[in-house]
């Protein structure tokens, strides 16, 4: 047994990682089995990323991992070493003004209990980055990776439409 352990010496139970979250670099030593969702919530105290099923279905824990929407409950913190993550806390502007997506959710009453909301906003952010002008059907299809139990989705869909419109305008102004 001892020999085998030696051979597998590169296999560790704890690991030092350096992760950039919302632009800030964090260095931590973590157990390798620590889920990324738990790392964000309980080590970095970024509790806006919620946990609803730990099975990759509900979407509450969705964050941007190197710009792509992923389930934080299906990754280990150690896998985030050297990577860049954006969470809901990184969405608002420097002066803390709401991001146009967040603003649209407020105006259209796209949230009720608010538990699924951060994950949905991160997904929508990724969606609109890729499809700036989605149809309602596309919005509904893309939203299907996030469960909401309060809103019936209707106002979320309306919020996404509004956000898309504003982001397109913003984009045009920049150009």
């Amino acid at each position: 047994m001892r020999e085998r352990d030696d051979d597998l010496s590169q296999c560790v139970e704890e690991c030092e990682i350096a992760v950039t979250v919302n632009g800030n670099r964090h260095e931590h030593t973590v157990p390798v089995r620590l889920l990324l969702s738990d790392f964000l919530r309980h080590e970095l105290h970024l509790t806006g990323t919620h946990v609803g099923c730990e099975q990759g279905v509900c979407g509450c824990c969705t964050v941007l991992f190197n710009g792509e929407a992923v389930r934080a409950c299906l990754m280990f913190a150690v896998q985030a070493d050297g990577m860049a993550i954006t969470t809901i806390e990184g969405m608002a502007g420097v002066n803390s003004e709401l991001h146009p997506i967040q603003q649209a959710f407020r105006e259209k009453h796209g949230l009720q209990c608010g538990f699924c909301t951060p994950g949905i906003i991160m997904s929508v952010h990724a969606m609109l980055h890729e499809h700036p002008d989605p149809t309602e059907e596309e919005i509904r299809h893309e939203l299907s990776g996030n469960l909401c139990r309060c809103t019936g989705y209707q106002n979320i869909v309306e919020a996404v439409k509004l956000a898309a419109e504003r982001l397109r305008l913003q984009h045009m102004e920049v150009e």
Partner: peptide
């Protein structure tokens, strides 16, 4: 629903992974 204990490594080259396997 938390994963059980395990040991982990992330080789950079294929051969390393194949040796372990």
């Amino acid at each position: 629903m938390k994963p059980p204990r395990f040991r982990y490594c992330s080789p950079r080259i294929l051969d390393e992974a194949l040796v372990l396997l």
